[in-house]
Amino acid sequence: MTTEVIDRWRSGKSPWGHTWQKNMMWWFIVTDGLLFAGFLCSYGFSRLGSSNWPPTSAYFSTLFLTTMTFILITSSATMACAVGSSRAGDRKATRKFLLLTILGGLAFLGMQAFEWTHVIAEGLRPGVNPHGDTLFGAYFFIVTGFHGTHVLIGVLVILITFLKRRGETCDLNPDGVELTGLYWHFVDLVWVVIFGAFYLIGS
């Protein structure tokens, strides 16, 4: 078993049977995921140690947040369909699903901009919170801002992938679509955790 593993790593080929680009994307996902884990663990620590942590319902509507989650989950499904269509060699369907994913990402970003505008109008700032502990504002803007930046980058990457698919002479390489998809699903996965751990617990 040990010899087999060493041979696999020394062979010059990917030890897990897929491309190095895909390995690198997964390594990025794991390290970036641990970064978000650090944010959320720090948030949990501060929240457990605070005596006047505000309920999230003081600022946010559960219906609005559920709609945001619905949009991001749907865009993740359309991205998965883009990857599936790309593997099947269906250029038209790939482009259609990529475009739907971009629209979903933009809708999510629009709703996040609306949410930020709303809470800022309510008086929430990174160091100011009219409804309780001041750390709440800092965690809200850092966690959702960092995630929103990931969504924005994801939309740009999908747009680049979509534009590359437009050319009739372009080679339909499913690996590129799959890497883009992995990143987008990671963004969705992080939001699922934020939605539950940050917004819903103690709402």
Binding site: V30, L34, G38, L40, C41, S42
Partner: peptide
């Protein structure tokens, strides 16, 4: 992937959460 992400996230939270709760 699972061990890196899930285990270390839980370990991190498990190590600092008791201190937060005791504050």
């Amino acid at each position: 992937v699972a061990v890196s992400l899930v285990f270390f996230s839980l370990l991190l939270f498990g190590l600092i959460a008791p201190d937060g709760a005791a504050m």
